[in-house]
Design a protein around this nucleic acid. Structure first.
Lengths: 225, 225
DNA sequence: AGCAGCTTATGAAGATTCTGGTAATTGAAG
DNA sequence: CTTCAATTACCAGAATCTTCATAAGCTGCT
């Protein structure tokens, strides 16, 4: 699960990020209006935490932008300006929840969880692909109706491949989606290789009709076989 | 996938090119009307990004030219002049999409991807040639219904030959299509020779009724035998 | 024909990337 | 702290792609 935190106060930001990362979310941040806009357009998130009192632009404009993009993530507004107007404006613009400052971290987690759960229900149906069934809600995968136990990374990778079926997935894109954007140019891709290897082994062991094909020098592609 | 970017502002151009190259597209550029015309006539592209407000000629004229050439690539118009007229004129002249400035890079990528995908689906069916069958979507090649395993480069070369059947293919054109324009005048063509050699060997081993004929001093030609 | 100067072909070595095994590290749970 | 699973690192070998050296072929010239 990938979360974007838009917040300008460094302390607060740090706090939120640490606590979310402790819960195993992949967290990215934006401290300014522009940075936020860029991230929103570049990557896909499952949930966005938005402080609407940013220094260089109104956070509500970001909401507007998100709505126009027709994106599918959940949005939780965080604000110290606890006016009813702000709240109404935010929810009208499609925010999923509103969290007044100050708040307790546990409260934040609960809201995030609830938004993610709600979102999941909306799009919740089995994804079928060959003899494979994926239940995004339970994060479970079935091959011929027997359960395939995947680790977190393996599952994330598989789901990313599935949502990019027949499309080419660059190693950097895969890396950014599954590991967050801390990936460096200079980094090796050993951890990707390792995970791909394990995923392939498990898929093969259950005779899934899927193949992760390597494209030399570029990345991978998921094929039905 | 080869993309031509026609754009006169250096910053913007640089930006676009970098981002597309990061996605592993082969990118070429033209900053003026004349340069664009030349490239269009000389090479084949899978997609063209066209800024219609060029300094030395109306970008729409390029669209017109493309249409008359009956070329098969996708065209995305980029423009800061966001008048409805421009948009309508562009789409009427056969553009596939219209992207108003300013835009976010991710938006651009999405459009490019979508145009390329659409194009691919249109032309997606088995290509038959002698006793050879090519499935462009799966990137597979069959000779007498047995699979012929080709590497990426070998496949790219074969497909380029096939799409230029009976036509003469210059080494530079082939090189630029398969390797992109990182090819230098000073470069040798050893890698082309090597790949051609391997491709020929594989075609011969499976007794494909195809022959890659060298034309001394000019290039190659694919013949049915 | 014979030769010079070029282009093309070929096999082998080199470089890079990918694979699949194993091992080390990290992290969570008891 | 210990234990077990998850994740990452390391490595040898395979596959892919490029470079290199050298051979062979073509063209125009005398």
């Amino acid at each position: 699960m990938k979360i974007l935190v838009i917040e300008d106060e460094p302390d607060m930001l740090d706090n939120i990020v640490r606590s979310l990362e402790a819960e195993k979310y992949v967290v990215e941040t934006a401290a300014t209006f522009d940075a936020a806009l860029e991230k929103i357009h570049l990557y896909q998130y499952d949930c966005i935490l938005l402080d609407i009192s940013l220094p260089d632009g109104n956070g509500l404009a970001i909401l507007q932008e998100l709505k126009e993009m027709d994106a599918a993530q959940g949005v939780i507004i965080v604000s110290a300006r606890n006016s009813v107007d702000d709240k109404v404006a935010g929810l009208n613009l499609g925010a999923d929840d509103y969290l007044p400052k100050p708040f307790h971290i546990a409260e934040l987690h609960a809201r995030v969880k609830s938004v993610l759960r709600r979102r999941k229900f909306e799009g919740s149906r089995l994804i079928e692909l060959g003899n494979l069934k994926v239940d995004p809600e339970e994060r479970t995968v079935y091959v011929n109706d027997t359960l395939l136990t995947l680790n977190r990374k393996e599952y994330d990778i598989l789901l990313y491949f599935i949502s990019n079926k027949n499309r080419l997935v660059s190693k950097t894109a895969l890396g950014e989606h599954v590991w967050g954007d801390q990936i460096d140019e200079a980094d090796s891709f050993d951890f990707i290789y390792s995970q791909i290897k394990n995923l392939r082994k498990k898929l093969k062991a259950q005779e899934a009709h899927l193949e992760i094909q390597a494209i030399y020098g570029i990345g991978y592609k998921l094929l039905l076989t």
